[in-house]
Nucleic acid binder design. Structure first.
Lengths: 192, 192
DNA sequence: TTCGTTTTGCAACGATCATTGCAAAATATC
DNA sequence: GATATTTTGCAATGATCGTTGCAAAACGAA
């Protein structure tokens, strides 16, 4: 019916996500996007609306594709080992992240939560999802008798979520292998 | 010898600190500063140099005046109680912070660490200072036999610092009294 | 090929950014 | 009161911000 787009919308969205992830919302200009995505600004506006819209779409894409998954829970695997694997994965991410990009959701929350209602909403949902993921793992661990049944699973879930957020800050402030390992050891020990 | 300044330099610096603290570096414009500090921009530049200089001076001021103190360690007080008091204080700060300002050092690190070498340096120092503060408390707790002597005090210190960073993110993302209380309970329990 | 529709490139928009030149105002010292 | 020195207010700088109007280009459908 008409002239087709000269770019892959999904690919461009992913590249935009990467850029916002690395630099943050305010520090990423339309010109930055134009250059790194190889797409004219007019096409960006045509396709994604405003800069703010594009950012929210990118943040949405992030939560859908880049959030750590809490799945993998099956009858024969240890839940505590799974939790430990999550923190080890976080550590590896942080150490391999030469740009210190960290976590886009936490970055966005730190930059905009409280002043941008959309981002504030996303943040609260992210906390809920994260806590919920840990909750399931903790409950699973209690059922498997790896984690004492008398401990409050919701408290433990919030505690683990908080630890994860700490990791995300450490990734920005001073990412050190030994630090991550030490913390992980203490946290895992505290579950037993 | 000459015309005196019409403002109190320290007071103005404090006000600038508050503004950067609330809004972040990039989101705070010279015009914002002019208006909130009631000082002409020309005087700001005369006194503090550039915006970036002013920000660094403000950040320095923050670490000197607003950093949580780890003192208070005396022979008859419990170290673990002191640690618990620190987290309870953090919780109170977060809950009473209607603007969700959080911690200026963590905010600055999240916004600029990795791209601003000055801020990167400040961040690493802050982590060191924080960890060192907790380390002393932990060692003290071990001497007083409140904390098992076989635990690695540096690991515990890093673990507590990480928890503190998590609190700072929670303060932005979803500050809830119950959450802070639950986490504190688990953390304190894990020391014993 | 022609028509209808959408995308694209170009150039500009007004707004705001951090920074500064300059001259008038203000004060301490003489 | 005169002079030297600093601060202040004003206005402007060039740069960059996000956004958009417009016409040409590109394609599917007829």
């Amino acid at each position: 019916m008409a002239r087709p787009k000269a770019f892959d919308e999904q690919k461009i969205l992913n590249k935009a996500m990467r850029l916002f992830w690395e630099k943050g919302y305010q520090a990423t200009s339309i010109q930055d996007l134009e250059e790194h995505l190889n797409v004219g600004r007019r096409s960006l506006y045509n396709t994604f609306g405003s800069k703010h819209d594009l950012f929210l779409t990118a943040l949405d894409q992030y939560t859908k594709t880049e959030s750590p998954d809490f799945d993998g829970s099956c009858p024969e695997t240890s839940s505590v080992d799974l939790i430990q694997a999550i923190f080890e994965e976080l550590s590896l991410e942080a150490l391999g992240d030469s740009e210190r990009s960290g976590c886009m959701m936490v970055n966005s929350a730190m930059e905009l939560a409280g002043r941008d209602s959309d981002v504030t909403g996303y943040s609260e949902n992210a906390i809920k999802a994260m806590t919920n993921g840990f909750y399931k793992l903790v409950r699973d661990g209690q059922i498997k008798k790896e984690i004492p049944i008398d401990k409050d699973p919701m408290a433990l879930a919030q505690y683990l979520a908080n630890t994860m957020l700490g990791f995300r800050v450490m990734a920005k402030m001073d990412p050190q292998k030994e630090t991550f390992e030490n913390i992980t050891k203490v946290v895992i020990q505290s579950l037993k």
